[in-house]
Amino acid sequence: MRVLIVEDDDSVASALGDALRATGHDVDRVDSGVDALLRHHDRDVVLLDLGLRDGDGFDVLRKLRQVSRTPVLVVTARSDERSTVRALHLGADDYVVKPIRLRELLARIDAVTRRRPASSTQADLVHTNGVTIDLAARTVVARDGTPVPLTAKEFALLAVLARRIGTAVSRQQILDEVWGDAFAAASRSFDVHLTQVRSKLPSAELITTIRGFGYRLEA
């Protein structure tokens, strides 16, 4: 299992990482909230400390939950009920108080990853309003067979919407999946690429803006 440790104490992170690797896990470690938001994408579970060098882990948890359903276990020295309840309300899957008991932590990791429903398999071909989007081949073709020439970034943006066709997708989630950071200065680039995608599709109305939230590819 691919584990991301978010911990700013080097000794704690090293001991935890070594223990998890010894049990067969692929472990990556970061020591800041900013890096956690950049590196969570390819991980199966996140172990999140609440006291980080660049801010509060609660804020990191809130931002993660805006863009990702990756299981998050809060691993912290804070044992008070208020912190536990707040973390769970913000979307943590479990709460573990230090000092860590490895066997218990492993069991909790297994439990939260089992509870997550498996993602539904997406069809490679998405058909909508005279456009065929081939997610595997990374091509877009209009009804008359004319290819729609999208750049790699433009296609990635469209693909995020196509995988959830008919469903509202937040701006932050698109930024997270395409640019790798929902909270960095990629917003201007996002706007430019979205405008380009709309201009190249047969109809700009294929992508609906949901004010204050995000966008939807119409089915």
Rank of each mutant, 00 (worst) to 15 (best):
D59Y: 00
V3A: 09
K153N: 04
W179L: 13
G145H: 11
F213W: 12
A137T: 05
T139L: 04
L52Y: 05
G91K: 05
I207N: 12
D44N: 13
S189Q: 15
S79Y: 04
T139M: 03
H127Y: 11
T209G: 05
Y95N: 06
R43L: 03
A159I: 07
I174S: 03
V6W: 13
D134Q: 01
A36Y: 14
A77F: 05
A111M: 10
V178Q: 07
A168I: 08
A123Y: 01
V148M: 08
I133Y: 10
L73N: 01
S68V: 07
I207G: 12
A168F: 01
E177T: 03
R114E: 08
A156R: 15
G17M: 01
R43I: 00
V27A: 02
I207R: 09
R216H: 01
A159M: 03
R78N: 15
G24N: 11
V131K: 02
A118D: 10
V12F: 10
F155L: 06
G145R: 11
V148W: 09
T23Y: 07
S68C: 11
E154Y: 01
D181I: 00
R101A: 01
L201H: 12
R43Q: 15
K98A: 08
R108C: 03
I174Y: 09
R78L: 15
I133H: 09
E177N: 08
D26L: 06
L73P: 08
D59A: 05
V30P: 13
F183N: 04
D54T: 02
D10N: 08
A111V: 02
D8Q: 12
A13T: 02
A19C: 06
V112Y: 07
R164E: 13
L61Y: 07
R216Y: 00
A77S: 14
S68L: 07
S199L: 06
E205Q: 12
S11K: 05
F213P: 00
L73C: 02
S119I: 04
G51D: 11
R29N: 08
A184R: 14
R188E: 12
K153P: 00
H127L: 09
D10K: 10
R78H: 15
L52C: 04
H127D: 14
A137Q: 11
L201D: 09
